[in-house]
């Protein structure tokens, strides 16, 4: 398992977003802070009923932003050739790699 970075930055539409990583109840979460007045929020990648994985905000309500930012986090790690593994609450046997 690759160690996740505690805090890193990604870019979205020319803006620098701060991403803070936390592991809560064995689930890896990413807390996003914006340079403008948008409220920070938390996203994670979880399993749907039919075993598809999707990005969501936690709590619910900012799904579109999660869908937009989540892939940037994946791209960040891919660019570093570090594909972190997270543990899913439903399928610990299946490494929930980003």
């Amino acid at each position: 398992m690759v160690e996740l970075e505690k805090i890193f930055y990604i870019e979205l539409a020319g803006q620098k977003l701060q991403v803070e990583t936390a592991t809560i109840s064995k689930q890896v979460l990413f807390h996003i802070c914006f340079p403008d007045h948008r409220k920070p929020f938390t996203i994670s990648r979880i399993y749907s009923f039919d075993r598809q994985r999707f990005w969501t905000s936690i709590p619910e309500g900012r799904f579109r932003e999660a869908q937009q930012i989540g892939p940037l986090i994946e791209a960040y790690y891919r660019a570093k050739q570090q594909i972190p593994e997270t543990v899913s609450q439903t399928a610990p046997q299946e490494a929930n790699s980003i």
């Binding site: 689930q27 979460l29 979880i46 749907s48 969501t56 709590p59 799904f63 609450q89 439903t90």
Partner: peptide
């Protein structure tokens, strides 16, 4: 959850996770 179909077990777990995140 977020408009995506999830199991009841996952739904309860996610709701608990929300509280921890808060």
């Amino acid at each position: 959850y977020s408009g995506i179909k999830v199991t009841k077990e996952d739904f309860i777990w996610l709701k608990g996770l929300e509280k921890e995140v808060a």
